[in-house]
Computed example of a mutant assay.
Amino acid sequence: MTDNTPFAAQPRVAISACLLGHNVRYDGGHKQDRYIIETLGKYIEFLPICPEAEIGLGVPRPTIRLMGDHVHPRLVGVADPNWDVTDKMEQFAAKKADELRDISGYILKKNSPSCGMERVKVYSETSHQNLRKGTGVFARIVMHHQPLLPVEEEGRLNDYVLRENFINRVYVYHRWKRLLVSGLTPATLIAFHTDHKYLVMAHSQAAYQRLGRLLSNLSDMDLSTIADDYIQELMPTLKRRVTRKRHANVLQHIMGYLKKLISSDDKRELAASIEAYRRGETPLIVPITLFRHYFRHHPDSYMSRQIYLHPHPDSLGLRNTI
C-alpha cells in the first residue's frame, strides 16, 4: 500500500519568495499570503525563490515588464525599455528548472512579469496598449522544462476547486517521486495504480482504462518507458476539474463494497448523502466521512488502499468546500 497517511513526509514545493513574507519585491516589500504560510505551511516544505533578486537586479530595483510578442515577450525596464534582462532571466530559469527536480509543485506570484503563470500584461512596442495574454519569463521556462509539475498562482488558490485540485496533484506527484526513489518495480507500479484507482476515475474513467492498458504488458516493454508513459498520462488527467456528478459516480462505485455489509437503513442513509452532495446541498467531506465510518466498522483490504478516501491531510479542509 502506498504510504499516504499520516503524511509524515512533506511534499517540497517551490514558491515565489514574496508570498512567504520575504522582502524581495521591486519596492523592497513583500506579498505575504497567510493561507499559504499558516495553513499549507504546516504540511508542505516551501522552497522560496525570487528570480529577479537571484539574477542580481537588487532590492529595491527598477520595475520591469513584458513587451512585444505575447508568446515570447522581452523582459525590459519600464523607465528604460533598452534595459533588457530577458536572456539573463531565461538562462537562470533553465538552470533553476534543472536543479528543481525534487520538487512536487510550484506556487507563483500572479501578474509578475517574471513569475506570473498566465494573463500577465504584455505591452506593445508601438502603442500604449497591453494585452493580458502573457506568462512570466521565469515561469514559462520552468513550466516548459517541467511540464508535469503542478503549478498554480496564489490568486487562483482562492478558488476552492482549483485549490483542492492543485494540492491533490502535489501529493500525487510527491508519492510518484517517492516511488521512483524507493525503487521502481512492476509490483510497485501496479500497486501505485491500484491505490489511485478511484482518484483517477473521478477525473476520467477513460484515462484510468488507458493507464491500466499501459500496465498490461509490463513483461514485454522497458519498465522505465512504461513508467514515463504512465506519468505523462496521469498528471494532465488530474488537472481536469472534477464535477459533483463525477464524484457522486465514484462514490456509488465505492458503495458497492458495502452493499452486503451494512443494513438497509445505512444504505439508504449513504445513498441519500451521495445524492445530497450531487445536488450541491453538502460538501464532499460529508459522504466521505460516512464512508470512512462504515469502512472502520467493516474493513476492506482493497478500499483501505484507496487514496481517494484520504488524498491529503483532513485538517487542510479542502473537501469541506467542494
Rank of each mutant, 00 (worst) to 15 (best):
M89R: 02
M303Q: 03
S301P: 08
P73Y: 00
L189H: 03
V71I: 15
T86A: 06
H144L: 15
D69E: 09
P150L: 04
H293S: 10
G68T: 05
A8H: 14
D220T: 14
H247Y: 09
E38M: 08
D98K: 13
V85I: 12
V242N: 02
L47K: 10
P51N: 06
T2P: 14
A14W: 05
I49M: 10
M117R: 11
Q306D: 04
W176T: 01
K260W: 12
S315A: 14
P62W: 13
L234I: 01
R132M: 13
A14I: 07
F138M: 04
P313C: 00
Y208D: 07
L270E: 00
R244H: 06
E153A: 10
T86W: 04
S112M: 00
H310G: 07
Q32V: 11
E52Q: 00
D80P: 07
L189A: 03
E275P: 09
A248E: 02
I274G: 03
D27M: 03
V142D: 01
M255L: 12
Y173F: 11
N320A: 14
N130C: 13
N4I: 14
Y171S: 08
F46I: 01
D102F: 11
M67L: 10
Y257C: 08
L189V: 05
M221S: 13
H144V: 13
N158L: 12
R278K: 10
L75H: 05
A272R: 12
C18M: 09
F291T: 01
D69T: 07
G21Q: 02
Y308R: 04
E154C: 07
V172T: 06
A97I: 05
G116H: 00
G77E: 03
I274C: 05
K121D: 08
L234R: 00
V71C: 12
Y35R: 12
D159R: 05
I49S: 06
S315L: 14
